[in-house]
Amino acid sequence: MVSVSEAAVRDHLTSVLADRDEEIADRWVQLQIEQGAVGSSISETELRGEADALIAALRAGLESDLPVDRVVTSDEDLRTAVTDFSLQRARLGTAPTVTSLAVLSLKEALLEAVQRRVADTDELLAVALTVNRLLDAAGALSFDIYVTGREEIISRQSRQLMELSTPVVQLWKHVLAVPLIGTLDTTRTQVVMENLLQAIQTHEAQVAIIDITGVAAVDTSVAQHLMQTVTAVRLMGADCVISGIRPPIAQTIAQLGIDLSTILTRTTLADALAAAVRITDAPGVSGDQTAAR
């Protein structure tokens, strides 16, 4: 086999990418659509935009002085193009295999274009090998970024879900309520506590109602956290009413031996609101529960 210089290979590739960019981009978009990979989540125009950007970046990367093995990871524009491509798919929830396939089909589109231009077998082989190395690196980077992107999305979503599932609402002037629904774990109880205290300060609320009608059961640590929340609310100078304690939870609390004598409880949210309004009508301070009793 006659060795073909790397410079010659890169020359071939850059000129193919320059002269036949339209053709390669069209073909790549076509291949991706044929694979049915992206479904309707990305329009053809968007795919074409991505393709143009990536092909241009690939050419610029090859024209740089960077060695082939490092072009993808070290050339800033190329890296950005691969990153955008991968994050876009991570955001749309495209399957990881589909994302990998998309990168591989660029290989196919590019090789077809090279084949039409390079006649010499040795040269063709050398160029094909380089294309392989380049796009394998791009595939690896793409997969990495895809996974990181997904992880970020998942952790952001779980945070948002946490926020969503613990809304603090203003029920009345100076009265806030947190209706808790579902399973309470320690993390969520802590988020509730932090959100509630912040809201009390923001709204200058005098009474905070924690409604646990929708909570099926609590364990020791959650019960403890609820009690801590009540204490923290009192320290800030507001009062806390817990409403909707269902029988199993009442039993848990009783078994824990938690002292509820200082905590105001009501059966329903409506009763709690009535109690809260009475408290706000009386200019008392926290710790002075006479107004509410």
Partner: peptide, 20 residues
Amino acid sequence: VAITLVELGLALEGVETALT
């Protein structure tokens, strides 16, 4: 501060508090 105090185990029992 309120959260930290509670976690410290200090509830300032007997101290009256006000929001502002």
